[in-house]
Amino acid sequence: MGEVIVITSGKGGVGKTTTTANIGAGLAMESKSVVLIDADIGLRNLDVVMGLENRIVYDIVDVVEGRCRIKQALIKDKRYPGLFIIPASQTRDKNSVSPEQMANLTAELRKEFDYVLIDCPAGIEQGFKNAIAGADKAFVVTTPEVSAVRDADRIIGLLEANGLKDPKLIINRIRPQMVKKGDMMNIDDILDILAISLLGVVPDDENIIISTNKGDPAVADDHSKAGQAYRNIVARTMGHKVPIMEMDEPGFIDRLKRLFGVKVG
């Protein structure tokens, strides 16, 4: 039986879809069988980020309404043999699917796959309720902005109220230089408020924009810091212990401190 993980944030534009695509691709790179579900019905993006838009025949609404079998709606990724996506419908809205239907769909999929990742829409309405219905774990994505953290806090409360205990946090798009200058919330500030365990920190990286536009997840890029961060998140998702990576090239003093076993930053 596979795990069903919902990737959510509350606020829009913090990187849920990018995170879903990268974790999915990363797990597939580790030879896991993975299916990604785009639950953002009416505003589908996941297929675009994955570069699979032109292969869509059936979508999630077709599946729940019985117009096709689940297998027919699964789109095979062009890079990784174990990776599939179920796209959202672009012509319908969130009310086309009910939480029960989502729970049934994920229950079917988890029999076949190691991981079922659900890309949750922004907001806390029907789309959110659908996305979390079948999940047994949740990853909350936030950026180091007060508004995103506020929404993440609200989402964590709602997840906990819906029985999704112990959600994990992904801090996206952090800029180490700004944090250093005190112009950006640091990891501790965010953890202080949200008080949940940290799954990973992804630095702001131009490569992400390039790879997202090309439909090619950055997780496979060995030269990208964000790619490395996603690979670490993937390892942690699989239960491996990986330390949170250094965001910055350590200075002389930091290296000296590390030499003497003093905890750095």
Binding site: R150, D151, R154, G157, L158, A195
Partner: peptide
């Protein structure tokens, strides 16, 4: 007087 009040354990998050 009369009401013992309420005790809440755990973090209260936005919206709660």
């Amino acid at each position: 007087k009369g009401d013992p009040g309420k005790f809440h354990r755990g973090t209260l998050r936005s919206g709660q």
